[in-house]
Structure formats: structure tokens, C-alpha cells
Nucleic acid binder design. Sequence first.
DNA 1: CGTTTTTTTGAGCACTATCAACAAGTGTGG
DNA 2: CCACACTTGTTGATAGTGCTCAAAAAAACG
Lengths: 259, 259
Amino acid sequence: MDESTIAEKEPEGPRPLEVSQLAGAFDRLFGLDEGERRHLEACTANALAIEPRRKLIVEGEPCGRLYIIKSGWMVETRQLRDGRRQILTIRLPGDIIGIGCLSYPKALQSTVALTRCTVSPLSREEFEGIQRNFPRLATALFLMTLHESAILHEWEVNLGRRVAIPRVAHLLMELHYRACRRGLADGGQIPFPLTQEDVADCTGLTTAYVNRILQELRRKDLIRIDDRTLTVLDMAALGGVAGFRKDYIAHWQGQGGGC
Amino acid sequence: MDESTIAEKEPEGPRPLEVSQLAGAFDRLFGLDEGERRHLEACTANALAIEPRRKLIVEGEPCGRLYIIKSGWMVETRQLRDGRRQILTIRLPGDIIGIGCLSYPKALQSTVALTRCTVSPLSREEFEGIQRNFPRLATALFLMTLHESAILHEWEVNLGRRVAIPRVAHLLMELHYRACRRGLADGGQIPFPLTQEDVADCTGLTTAYVNRILQELRRKDLIRIDDRTLTVLDMAALGGVAGFRKDYIAHWQGQGGGC
DNA sequence: CGTTTTTTTGAGCACTATCAACAAGTGTGG
DNA sequence: CCACACTTGTTGATAGTGCTCAAAAAAACG
């Protein structure tokens, strides 16, 4: 309904690392050949800019294409009738969104930008072309989906069986690891565009309570959050609190910088 | 460690519906051709029987093959150090389990039989053979995975944002719909092999509390559970309590008997 | 600088967990 | 067919985690 949710324009100044983020991920995964790489680059050539808090995909509306995130963070959300919201997944640069929509006539969840984002749209036809003509890419896609399922499973455990402090701590640990793997970390620091309300919607808690939990984690000198940046001060300790085990985070994605 | 968790023997007397369950699902989905169907049948010819409560896949141990459930119900679980357990997914006849294991050296979750089950093992080689030689089957597999992701997302919402009564009600609604689609329903009734402890582990609640919730649902004449059978007495009312929307349950799987 | 978003704080209470004990099933072997 | 063991379901009293509902303070934004 809001036509202006997305604006078609070139990204202002994409950093080299981000442009080939996806190809990078696939490459480390499979060692792409020249043709595969070139096709992938071609598909992701054009870009779309999305402003923070804008919706790229809207729950309940049809969505015929997918998007590859070139830069920025997004979340997929579902809204209940009474207004409460659950964040289903957090998507980082290199992730693909909207695949799930391909098999449903209407999107089951919304996709919202946390930061300014640039994405490459991919039509259903282009996507199916890749599936048909580049079987190895199709396999890689499949593996990415499986990896995402593993993360979802971990979220189920988090939501179902951990109390608030471990629950929040686990989210932070996971994001740290995932961001790190994508080369977004800078010495224990990662960008952290989530508001406390977002954290609450990830963890199934209230904003007010999340605030208290974060204070607690800060008081114990485990983390620091300022200027939309998360610093994990004591990885081992935070991991201990969270009951975190990193084994579900993609192991095959190479060690992109010591994480 | 327990070698006797599985026993290699023929199923006692498989009902026709179950044998071709998988082919059935795929068929409705894509209209398989003769070769595809025959290959699928061939792959799922041999069977393995599993006793109730036995583990087919054990968390932390390597798992090189997958299994297609021909009959019976299973659950995938993750266990925390303190013994608490979260059920991640419920698997019905026709589901494939262990795909996630393919991309990890060790299984991230256990798979436990709720009832006596029969499954067809599929080696990694056979699986990759299907992927390579039957692209349409590969696509179908991919779509099944996406469908499972949609269910996982719904579980996240359930665990994160619904209080106990809607939460349990939602689980029951989902199982009813899913079972119905697989032709397991018999006029508002479905088999219900979950104990209250299992329900608790699905919903992140305590056994004691689940007991009270179920009493409440019975008191309101919404459901009845006896003899391992769930009867939904008032579908609309239960769906209302649950905040259930069926749109995430596979729509493309045909209407297998009015559900 | 005013406006909006985000973070922080307080008091009270509701929902759900805990723990323990008991009842009712279920299955097994004698 | 009964006796026994074990699993599953049920109940009660109590504690505690996390929610509600403001409202204020601080930060971000244009």
C-alpha cells in the first residue's frame, strides 16, 4: 500500500567487500568456477536502496522476487493481530531473502530494514534459471537454507527453554559469530543496529525487561553497547551465561578473520 | 552408544497408503513421471523398524544418511546440559529426516520415535544421486525444506509471543492440519502419540502446567484426548483461541480429504 | 531547538515454574 | 489373570520470573 517503501537508485558508495559478499560466501563454500562467478555477479549487478525501518516485503502481499542483501541489516517479522511482533530471523549482508515467498501466493512475513540497505533483486525467472543452469549454485543455495534451519532450531531452543538472561546473551553471541563470519567484526566489536525493542521481539520478552537484562549484562562487564555497536568484553563468560555452542554456525564458510 | 536403538527388519504389515506416502506427496506436488516415481519407490523399498522412544539419530554423533518416514511419528529434539529438552519439529509419515545432518559433521539434534516407526534409510550417495539425476525431485525437496521453514517460523511466533493456552492450542491446530493433509485424520480425530511431557517440550512449558492447560481446553469442550487420539470438537473455536491461520501449512499439497 | 524515538525506572501483579506426592494407566512376566 | 514396575497424568501450595502500565530521562533526528 505504501508505494514509497522502496526507492530504486544506485547505492552511494559500496565497499568492495560488500559487493561480492554473496559470491564470496559461495566461493569459500564451493570454489566457484569462472562462469558461475560471472553469472552471479551479473545477477547482482543492479541495486535497490532501502531506508531504515522501511519494509521491503510486506506480510500478506504477493512477492514474486527475491533479494540478495549487499549491505545493511534486515529482519523478518510476523505480526499478531493485537500488534505484538516476533522477529523470525536476522539477515546480514550476503543473505538471501524472499525464497520462502516463492512457494506461497502471499508473503507470510514482512522484511524490514534495520539500517540503510542495498539489495539486488532477482526475479523468479532469474532464480529458476540459476537453479536449472548452475546446479552447483543450486546446491549451495540448498545448503544455505539448511544452515538457516539450524539457526532457526537454535532460536526455538532459546525461546522455549532459556530464561531471560541466557536468552538475550545467546542472541548476542550468535550475532557476534555470524557478523564475524561475514567479516563485519572489528576486534570484538560488531555493528549492532537493533533497538532494545528489536531485541525484545527476537527473544519474546518485553522492551522494559530487555532493558533490565542488558543492564545486568553490562554490570557484569560482559558487554557494552554504544553508538549502535556491540562490544563483547568477555566472549567466554558471555558464552557461558548463554549456554552457547558455536557448532551450529556454518563451519564450512571458512574462517573469515579468526572467528 | 546404545547399539540396539534400531533394529533391522521388515515392517510387519504396511498399509498401502503409507508405503507410497512420499511418492504421494511429491506426486500431488509435481506430477511425477514414471521414471521419477519408480526411482523413488526403489530408494524407499527397504525398511527399518524403530521402537517407541528409541533414538534414530543421536545429537553429537555423526550421521551420514537420511531417512524417509513410512509410518509412525517422530520428533527432533535438542537437549540442554541441565537436562531440559526442546522439541524442534514433529515429523509425520512422508517427512524426510536427517537432511540437516548432511552439512554438519555431527548431528545437531536427536531424532526420537514417538510411536513404532518404519523408515527407509537413504545413503548420502543415493541422495546426491537423486539431486543430480532427478532435478525435479531436487526442486521438490527444496520446496519441502522451505515449507518446513515456514512451520519453524510459526513455532518461533508460538514460543515467543503466545501465552500458554493459545500456545498449546496452536500446536494442536497445526498437528491436526498437518496430519489431515497426510491422510491421517478420521473425522476430526487424529492419532496423538505425544505425552503431556512431549507437548511441554514442544511449547517450552512445564509438564504440570501443560496438564492444567489441557484440562482447560477440555473444560471448554474444545478438544478431547483419549487413547492416544486427539479429537478437536470445535475447530473454529480452537483456532480462535490459538490465533491460528492455516495459510502457512502447505497449500500446494492438494486437499487430501477435505482439510 | 522542537519533535520523535529510544532508553530507563518503579510498583504491583499475573502467569508459569517448582517440588512433591499421589492416582491412574500401561505393559510385563509369572 | 494377577502382581509388579514403570510410565503418564493429576493435584496443591508456594515462589519467582517476567509482564503491565505509566511516566520521565536521554538520545537521535531534521
